[in-house]
């Protein structure tokens, strides 16, 4: 948020903080594709800007162990079927940073397809941004809302009960309009669907 809004000097200490918190971790799994994109695309450059050789080295050692949630399952663990059961109509929103910066491809969709009972419907205009964009949603609220409106109408067009994604920020934004318009459609993070079993009652 700081970096992308232009607050570079405020963002720099957060790199150090992240390294301190996660240096001991075998793997860091992040349930947000835009957070992982931030780390992969910018942390090395930010560490270089701080100019601390030890930090630069630590960032380069830590980053290969950082995974977005769905790629941790599909790429690191080689899993597709996680044994979930979710008998509902679901559509998947491909968040821009997952799609373009991380190249998640059809990984999340393969995970969803393996869920028992699921009725997965493809979203029209999958590559279209939902209009969140961090502070863009507030700074350019009108344009953001117009982009969101298009996303909502494609979500409603699928007849899905649930819209899922790998990024809670997109979901917070999409959910905000789905609720405002009293559509009855809810949003869930991919992890919540994959964690569902017959007793979960989601």
């Amino acid at each position: 948020m700081h970096w992308n809004t232009g607050y570079q000097s405020e963002a720099l200490p957060l790199v150090k903080r992240f390294v301190e918190q996660f240096r001991g971790a075998e793997t860091a799994v992040v349930p947000s594709s835009s957070c992982v994109a931030m780390m992969r695309d910018h942390y090395p450059k930010m560490a270089a800007e701080i100019g601390d050789a030890a930090l630069i080295a630590e960032v380069s050692q830590l980053l290969p162990r950082v995974f977005e949630f769905s790629e941790f399952l599909t790429k690191r663990l080689g899993l597709e079927d996680v044994g979930a059961y979710y008998p509902h109509r679901v559509t998947y929103h491909a968040s821009c940073h997952g799609l373009r910066n991380l190249g998640l491809g059809d990984g999340p969709v393969r995970l969803l397809k393996a869920v028992r009972g699921i009725d997965l419907v493809e979203l029209d205009g999958l590559e279209q941004c939902c209009g969140f964009g961090g502070t863009f949603a507030v700074k350019n609220a009108d344009v953001s809302s117009a982009m969101l409106e298009e996303k909502i109408s494609t979500v409603l067009g699928t007849g899905a009960e649930v819209c899922t994604a790998c990024d809670n920020s997109c979901l917070m934004h999409i959910q905000g309009a789905l609720h405002r318009q009293k559509t009855g459609v809810k949003t869930l993070h991919l992890a919540e669907i994959l964690a569902a079993d017959e007793g979960a009652g989601l």
Binding site: V138, K139, A141, S144, S145, L148, E149, G176, A177, H179
Partner: peptide
């Protein structure tokens, strides 16, 4: 204030 841009078209849980 500034955050009002959010609630123009969306609710916040």
């Amino acid at each position: 204030g500034m955050l009002g841009g959010w609630t123009k078209a969306r609710d916040l849980q």
